[in-house]
Design a protein around this nucleic acid. Structure first.
Lengths: 138, 138
DNA sequence: CCCTAGATTGGAATGAATCAAGTTTAGAGA
DNA sequence: TCTCTAAACTTGATTCATTCCAATCTAGGG
């Protein structure tokens, strides 16, 4: 198991029970939405407020310990895998998310053909499709 | 100007004033959010309800006449450019969206390295950065 | 021209996310 | 180890995009 306490300290964030619980939940369950994080955290720390979870998720996201992903039409989801720039496949039918390694090695599409003067710092790729389970269910 | 009436008929959709007004608004203003669409439509047709706009936007999206885009953390936006698969640059600071041609010709990243059994039908690319205006404003 | 499925209206409801004010606590400094 | 304060957390209310619902209207086929 990763040393979440050390992660927090490295990011100059205070080590609190809610934060450790959120990190543990995300470590065990990638791609969960906020409600699920709340449920997972409360399984361990029943007294944590939903507001605390929102605050923690924002703090962790800003610190770069967690990545927020929000496919169109869905609620925000979070994952703790942040070091690499991997992408996601999203099932149109059930919303399941899976990780996809970056096809072009490192930063694939980071060079837009015409950037309109924008200074681009990230290229986010979302693959839309249907997951195996939903294909079967049809 | 595009013949919006013909577009609607081609999609087997009834030709109504709200629909024509929405198509015209999107034709003139790419990447606008729902509230702006409502304002633009009402400039011409003051009596259109917000619910009608939501319904129209959904119908047009399902018919493929309009594309819905929703960068993480923002409200839904719509554009009428749908034939090609172009992508978008989004300004982190002001939310401005600009079009970007697909760098790799046709369907760039459509071949994920490992698709986990998903049947992928679309690859969506969002470039995040800062627009020229916000760079200046700093 | 008539009729009906489909479209629109107006109003109420949902739900993710944020705001606000007061209380607790982590952890740096004495 | 003790104190103190900024950061974190709690409780409760609020916002706002979006959807639901029942009643009314109308596009366009027959």
């Amino acid at each position: 198991m990763a040393d979440h306490e050390a992660q927090l300290r490295a990011a100059s964030l205070r080590v609190t029970r809610p934060r450790l619980a959120v990190l543990a939940a995300l470590h065990d369950h990638p791609h969960v939405d906020t409600d699920t994080v709340i449920a997972l955290v409360r399984a361990d720390q029943p007294k944590v407020s939903h507001q605390a979870i929102y605050d923690v998720l924002r703090a962790l996201t800003e610190a770069g310990l967690v990545r927020r992903i929000q496919p169109a039409g869905a609620t925000a989801r979070y994952e703790s895998r942040v070091a690499d720039n991997h992408h996601h496949v999203v099932c149109r039918s059930c919303g399941t998310i899976a990780d996809v390694e970056c096809a072009a090695g490192h930063t694939p599409c980071l060079t837009a053909s015409d950037d309109h003067g924008f200074v681009i710092d990230e290229a986010e790729v979302v693959y839309w499709g249907t997951c195996p389970a939903c294909l079967e269910g049809n």
